[in-house]
Design a protein around this nucleic acid. Sequence first.
RNA 1: GGCGACGUAGCUCAGCUGGUGAGAGCGCUCGACUCAUAAUCGAGAGGUCGACAGUUCGAAUCUGUCCGUCGCUACCA
Length: 558
Amino acid sequence: MADEQLTDQRAGRPVLVAVAWPYASGSRHLGHLAGAYLPADVFARHQRLVGNRVLMVSGSDVHGTPITVRADAEGVTPRELADRYHVEFVADWERLGISWDLYTSTGTDNHAAVTHDIFLKLLSKGHIDRRSSEQYFDGEAGRFLPDRYIEGTCPHCDYAEARGDQCEDCGRTLDPEELLDPRSKITGSSPELRTTEHFYLRLSDFSDELAAWLETREGWRLHVLNFSKGWVEEGLHDRAITRDLDWGVELPVDDLGPGKRIYVWFEAVIGYLSASMEWAQLNGQPEAWRDWWEGDDARSVYFIGKDNIPFHTIIWPGMLLGYGGLNLPTDVPANQYVTFKGGKASASRGVGLTIGAGLEMFQADALRYALAASLPEQSDTDLSVEEIGRRINDELVATWGNLVNRVLSMVHRTCDGAVPAAGGRAPEDLALLEAVDAALVTAGSQIHRVELRAALRTGMGAAAAVNAYLNATEPWKLAKVDPERANVVLGTALAAVVGVRVALAPYLPFSTSTLDDVLGPVDSWERRELSPGSPIGKPTPLFAKVDLDVLLSDQVDG
RNA sequence: GGCGACGUAGCUCAGCUGGUGAGAGCGCUCGACUCAUAAUCGAGAGGUCGACAGUUCGAAUCUGUCCGUCGCUACCA
């Protein structure tokens, strides 16, 4: 076990941190942040500190029917709508400190080119073929309708506003042709069935390979593995990978005539690869992406929400198998959902907070802490403004923020405003430092296993140990009777704080770098002794407590 | 309907392949301390581990049924 981790964490290993592509159809909320972006960032930051070569990529998913429909409703073009949210996302990431190596979008020429390459290769190898089917066509809007944009009467329960994919009243799954009195949700007109031809990905070609591959996965979360195996066992369906749309990546062949595009779910996952290539090009080493996609020692970890599991554990791996020569995911630590007071977070339904709203209420690091402490790694997690505020005030500020302020204040005042020499430490002093070092080892292996909540708790436990050490040694008393001992104790506490800061650095990038001037930058996953004599000025608190009464009353207004 | 999962202290959650008296954080009570953002430290109270029935020497942990909650069901991505 220990040996395995040593080799896994060997410095310089390529680690692809692949993060779900946010859909540029509306603001993202805290559930998305906790589900994918924050855990990915914590993981990536730790991997960099360990010395691995991290490539963390994602981008805005700018295609898909919902974007075209919403754009129509607002009287703008799909590109304008997608651009608007892309800009918002980029600003969110900046404010949150999400440390992308490249954050791009699926709207680039590069992405289209890579998508074409994969499409053509799968086509030439016979994993893509053409089939025709009957689809509802809205003559007034002049386009084919996705199932969910057809309304009608449910044949089972007579509910008048059942959708083409499912009746919301009786919950049954439907085919659009089953609806009585079908209507277009876009224009309200009666759609007609027309024959349309599409390309299909022969996912069934990979059933055996995928089943065998899933059997070899170790360390995967149980819910991810069960869900994925279940999909394969039920039998894989071949899927249409083109749509009757005029918004999306164009086909590299013209067999089907105009008005066809590659559908989002096929091309969006290709973004991981195309973004890696774009990153390599931007860095002047166009072939560098291969280290992450072809190397035997490369790891790839995909951070997604559970709604995306089949795309990353079945479909994308199937596409990669068909293409050949590229690495399949090492791990897909999909998170469950964050609920808000019991309801599924949904920006469109107004449940929960958007990332922007969260950042209005809380400091970025404080928000990162509260979410990281509540990540839905095993099961759904329930959040609220009160819960976030409690995490910040009673945990982050009280334990860690206060500790930093406490120690720096005493060192500043008691030790002549400089780092004391490290010599003369007693067994109890060394025991504290050993505990902090052990916490770094423990937290490191927890993060490596993507147990980010546990690792954060480990770090906070180390902070609590420093507080306990101070209460036991009482340096404020020693300063009056035994200044020499006081210096040793405060020097030890300061050294311990330096170590705890490393453990928390992946979670709290902003407040960590705030201390760079005093404690030096965090550039490796280890505790380093400060140079004796370095100046320690009068500190200012890292975090402010939040006033829940004010926040909650503001929220009511909003 | 089918599939997957969840229901453990007031709150938010951990508890691999069954076995020392059931855990953590926060909250609460009491005590200590006063260097620190009324922060910290220690001690303690608090749970028939959703219900019922099985398997077993022994189950929160396995099986079945039921109740409750949720997600997915392949054209939301």
